[in-house]
């Protein structure tokens, strides 16, 4: 339809140097696999860029792991003064800490630099992404990819493994399956929150810090027991920004702790559905944000 002006057969060969074949007409990057391939390409470039400063790279990886380790040191110090916090033992809190940390760590690793979108809108470098044959989302997600963020994921994984070794869980096939499912769903929920935040930055780049309230703030929230917080806060984290589905609700099934809001027990199983729903909402918001940018410019 759009090609009506220039018939396909009439598309002249443009020789530079002369006399060689023209690149294929087929639109690239249509399929998800193509998007993933492009993501991999850009991630590879950033990783090699980081390795250009080897010493700094090592320090950053160490720093990132240590940063979150000190974070857990705070939890350890708290439990040096008490054996229970909000009715949760250290091992139970460590389980929440580990699952929350792995979920946000994975989201942060895969598309954690999306909060830089506002900056790219302001300085105009987003335009360069819009003239490449790769979806903008893929480019923004891969932007400033930092392998050092693996430090956060592995630190959380260690805490989780330690907590599992200390917990006395009555495992059933259901709960064994639930553990990886809740980690993936949690990562998806946090990814959706990152994406939603970035979508808003197409219009409100200056407000980028609000995003941190829901991502890193959400992480700070869900690494402590829900019983510590006021009920309104827990309700907000369940029904408004569904962070409770990252770990609080599914964890009740594994830890055998009471349901924080007294909701029906089936709610504790639906994290994957909630994750799918917020991802869909994030996708819609992203499209709307991009459309708004393309109609108004920077």
């Amino acid at each position: 339809m759009a090609d009506a002006g220039v018939p396909r057969a009439g598309r002249p060969v443009r020789p530079f140097p002369p006399g060689e074949p023209v690149p294929p007409e087929e639109p690239a990057w249509r399929r998800p696999a193509d998007g993933l391939r492009a993501y991999g390409l850009i991630v590879g470039m950033w990783t090699r860029s980081a390795l250009a400063y080897r010493l700094s790279f090592v320090m950053m990886t160490f720093g990132n792991g240590a940063l979150t380790a000190l974070d857990f040191a705070a939890v350890a110090i708290i439990f040096g003064h008490t054996t229970r916090l909000g009715g949760f033992s250290l091992a139970q809190t460590a389980f929440l800490y580990g699952t929350s940390g792995m979920a946000i760590g994975l989201a942060d690793l895969l598309l954690g630099s999306m909060d830089g979108l506002g900056q790219r809108v302001r300085d105009g470098t987003l335009d360069a992404m819009l003239v490449r044959p790769v979806p903008v989302f893929v480019q923004v997600a891969a932007d400033r990819f930092a392998l050092r963020r693996l430090g956060r994921v592995s630190q959380a994984a260690l805490v989780l493994a330690w907590s599992l070794s200390r917990l006395d869980v009555a495992w059933t096939p259901g709960t064994v399956l639930l553990l990886p499912v809740m980690l993936v769903s949690g990562a998806a929920i946090f990814s959706a929150v990152f994406t939603l935040g970035a979508a808003f930055q197409f219009r409100f780049g200056d407000a980028s810090e609000v995003q941190n309230s829901f991502t890193y703030g959400g992480n700070a929230l869900t690494q402590y027991p829900p019983t510590v917080f006021a009920k309104e806060l827990v309700r907000g984290a369940t029904f408004v920004v569904p962070l409770a589905f990252v770990n609080w609700l599914p964890a009740t099934l594994i830890l055998g702790t009471p349901q924080p809001l007294g909701l029906p027990r089936w709610v504790d199983w639906v994290s994957p559905l909630v994750a799918a729903a917020v991802c869909a909402a994030a996708a819609v918001a992203w499209q709307a944000g991009l459309r708004s940018y393309r109609s108004t410019g920077s």
């Binding site: 759009a2 090609d3 009506a4 690149p23 003239v131 490449r132 044959p133 393309r294």
Partner: peptide, 19 residues
């Protein structure tokens, strides 16, 4: 607008390969 027979605003990524 037509560039190389393509409407840039509707087929941006397809056009990207040709500009």
């Amino acid at each position: 607008v037509r560039v190389a027979g393509i409407d840039p605003s509707r087929e941006r990524t397809r056009l990207a390969r040709r500009i």
